[in-house]
Design a protein around this nucleic acid. Structure first.
Lengths: 225, 225
DNA sequence: TAAAAACTGTAACCTAAGTTACAATTTGGT
DNA sequence: ACCAAATTGTAACTTAGGTTACAGTTTTTA
């Protein structure tokens, strides 16, 4: 698969044909890099001198707390830009560390070339604008999630979201409690305790990785908003 | 003072002369609105259908927690755009409630007219790009501040920032403990307790609104980063 | 300048979540 | 199918911060 073929799946190039992307790429410099599973793609605090685009694989963005414990901000699957809102503005540093979840390929476009790209096509510019706005929106939601919800609120929010994607009243957990705790920024035993309490209150029922929602109303009431 | 004169002080129009702004304004529709002290300019969750620019006065952005208790995200002084990153992207809703701190005037540019403005001048577009990127950066810092710092860490961070603006080892607090607690998202007595502990540890000395930093090293060490 | 209002200091008590530890269960590899 | 490793359940105990309450202090306003 060509670079342009990958990029045609990135929202930055939404509305553009593969051959148009090809033409645009010919006018700028860029590199492709491969990263092995668990390797560090960018370190929190590093200067952002280029726009990165994840072409294949998946990565995660993590913030570190004082004790070195990570909390996961998000999982990112190809094809997507990495840290789009951190190339411009005042603080050109990665806000999170970016780590490959699996073998991944990343396109690396130096800032000046990326600027040229934005200037060369109005559609791309508009897509970019949309994208960094969405980033700010995502971060603003993240504040609400991390800071305003207690553990049960986080669980309820998480389950409700999963439930919307499901056709039945059951959810299949694809991540472990440990991983979920990292996403919630809480300790694993505390998460398990909250799950237990939901079980005791007959709000959910767990069978291994399957979770059945028994009382959607009560669950919804736990979300603090 | 004309609208254009105010706008020439807004980073969105950085690099433009007053008469150039005047010309641009002639091509779009806009309104000016006045708000009294403590009145609601926009409610969290409201749809963002226009770009707001604070022309005079000052406002604050607040998130509400579940119990209706506010936490202040930031204070905004004229001249500045309000919620710039929330006009584009997927979630066109105010992330915070915006409340006038004092008598304030706000320019209201409907989304389409604002788009026209962005399209009509490359400098404005670039300024806007910088600005919404800075918003995302601000929010990312806010996550670190609110979620990763304990109360002493927040105090230390706050004092260190104030100290940088001061020529001596003293800080003059212009906000009350109550206001600071709202900014930190903590309760007032808990904040007072932490201040007391800093005093007991001989890290600071307080005399009314004056705070003298006795041990910068120890203070710095309290910031969790 | 006196009374009211706002602000600060502090204490007792409560609660959510962290920490540590370990047993029970599930999963995956050979 | 068996063993090791990972995951989950749970309990005891600690801790940071919330809640409530009230006294002392400073600032505002009449």
């Amino acid at each position: 698969m060509t670079t342009a073929a990958y990029l045609s799946q990135c929202i930055l190039f939404k509305g553009l044909k593969e051959h148009e992307i090809e033409l645009l790429l010919n006018q700028i410099h860029y590199q492709e890099k491969s990263f092995k599973r668990e390797s560090l793609i960018a370190q929190s605090g590093d200067e952002t001198t280029a726009q990165l685009i994840l072409l294949s694989g998946s990565v995660r963005g993590e913030m570190m707390d004082f004790n070195g414990k990570a909390i996961k901000i998000e999982d990112i699957k190809a094809v997507r830009m990495l840290a789009p809102a951190f190339l411009f503005g005042k603080q050109n540093h990665y806000p999170v560390s970016i780590i490959a979840n699996e073998e991944s390929r990343v396109l690396h476009i130096p800032k000046n070339d990326f600027l040229k790209l934005l200037g060369s096509n109005e559609l791309i510019l508009r897509n970019y604008l949309d994208n960094i706005s969405s980033r700010a929106q995502f971060l603003s939601e993240k504040i609400k999630f991390l800071f305003f919800q207690d553990i049960k609120g986080k669980l309820a929010h998480y389950y409700m979201t999963k439930l919307r994607e499901s056709s039945s009243q059951t959810i299949r957990m694809e991540s472990s409690q440990e991983q979920l705790a990292v996403l919630f920024g809480v300790s694993r035993p505390a998460l398990a305790r909250s799950i237990k309490e939901l079980r005791e209150d007959k709000i959910i029922e767990t069978h291994g990785k399957e979770i059945r929602i028994l009382n959607v109303q009560a669950l919804k009431a736990l979300v603090r908003e």
